[in-house]
Amino acid sequence: MTKGVQVRVSCRIELDSFEGPLDLLLYLIRRDEIDIYDIPVAHVADQYCTYIRMAQELDLDVASEYLVMAATLTRMKSRALLPRHEGGDDEPDPGAELRRQLILYRTFREIAEELQRSEETWTDIYTSPGERERWSEDTAPAEPGQASLMDLLKALSSLSEEDTEIPSQRIRRTLLTISECIEHLGRRIPPGDTVSFWTIVGPDPTPTRIVSFFITVLELVRRGWIGFQQAYPFSEIRLRRTERWNVDP
């Protein structure tokens, strides 16, 4: 089999003739007479990567989609090779998602072919009169030379009449570190008392301040330095120090 494969992959590579990685995969699957419902992931991954590598060696521009698929296949291959944990193995079959994608894509590709046949038939049928108006002189795409430089200039000037100055404003980034916040919190929460989160944030609740203090609160709760209370979702959060505040610093 390996030898046969080598002979076959040495055929000319025309990545351009494929409509993307799925199309290439379907080609490889058909070429190697693989059952789409039982895809040997490792084999297909190897074949696919060989194809891509050869395309790259030939200095063909390989679109990123092809590389993403190569990475996905390689990952699936390594998954398939790893021993499976016994029991509690919720890992989905790596081939299942690929199979789903391939079947969906293949079906749509067939539909596209059917549409193409309809196009073939209906292109010779002409109706009267409305539909063909679409191909009247007015709506036909512009031919070279049909529009002059003046037309373009006119279009440009009509645009620039509406020009408005783009307002500019310098946005200054205020830095508020977590340690500054902790210090601030220490001053604002008297021992044995509870304080609202919004009191901590202060009278100027910019997004930066809110987020910085919120992260600080999360951090301190994690360390066990403060406790908090919230009666119900979105209600006020009240904070208090725990005994560990003074112990751990």
């Binding site: 292109t123 010779d124 049928i125 002409y126």
Partner: peptide, 13 residues
Amino acid sequence: RIATESEFGDVVS
């Protein structure tokens, strides 16, 4: 709608 037979596609086109 009224349409031409496809065999006249070449002429009409």
